[in-house]
Simulated assay, not measured.
Amino acid sequence: MQEFLNWTVDTIREDRLISPWLEEKKFEWTPIVARNITNILDKNYSVIVITDKERDWFLSYILSNINSSKLNRPFLPFYDFRSIFGYIDGVKSDDDITNIKDMLSISFPNGYSFWYIGKSQDNRANIAKISKNSFLWLLDEEKQDAINLKSNDEALDMKLLQMFRLYNKTLSAALFAQINVEN
């Protein structure tokens, strides 16, 4: 079983579809991804994916690829928040978020985490940012325990796709005990 940080670097270097920029983020990437994968595989958490409106395309991409039969792995519990709560853009207050969290606690008794991808100042981000278990890919904010990107980066879409590729490979490697994300 390979050490997670070394496996991440090796995978970035060996995969011709992942650019070297991601290797520079390895110390930011590995603890955040490790916590997320531990929540899924060890604690049986479900993952509720939310994006800002500009990244709705990426949400569709994630959900159509995360459980692809080509991966030859068990299906994992990833859900579109909009399919659980259709009034996502109507969430305005802390009471709304509290009510949503209550609903999700009932619906996902083993636990859940949000995976948010988008602008940090978007109203949708507030739903995910209040949870300590959230997996955050934030644009235009430097926040600890988040992957921080810039919305004005002309390569942003490609970076998101590369990050997803690495994340999906990491899920498979952890699931099949090739790596231990807990160390």
Rank of each mutant, 00 (worst) to 15 (best):
M1F: 01
E3A: 10
R13D: 14
E14I: 06
D15Q: 08
D15G: 11
I18S: 04
W21K: 00
L22Q: 04
L22F: 14
W29A: 07
T30L: 05
P31H: 12
I32H: 01
I32M: 07
A34Q: 05
R35C: 02
L41H: 12
D42V: 11
N44I: 09
V49Y: 03
I50Q: 00
E54W: 04
E54T: 09
R55V: 03
W57Y: 14
F58S: 05
S60H: 12
Y61M: 07
I62W: 03
L63F: 11
K70G: 01
N72F: 04
L76Q: 02
L76H: 02
P77T: 05
F78K: 02
Y79T: 05
D80V: 10
D80F: 10
S83I: 06
G90W: 06
S93F: 10
I97H: 06
T98N: 09
I100F: 07
D102I: 13
F108M: 10
F108H: 10
F108L: 07
P109R: 11
S113E: 09
F114Y: 11
S120F: 09
Q121Y: 14
N123L: 11
A125Q: 01
A128Y: 01
I130C: 04
K132T: 02
S134G: 08
W137S: 01
W137D: 01
W137I: 01
L138P: 00
D140H: 09
E142S: 15
I147A: 04
N148D: 15
K150V: 15
D153T: 12
D153M: 12
E154T: 15
A155H: 10
L161D: 03
M163F: 08
L166P: 07
K169L: 07
T170R: 08
S172K: 04
S172V: 06
A174F: 01
A174M: 00
L175V: 03
Q178I: 08
Q178P: 00
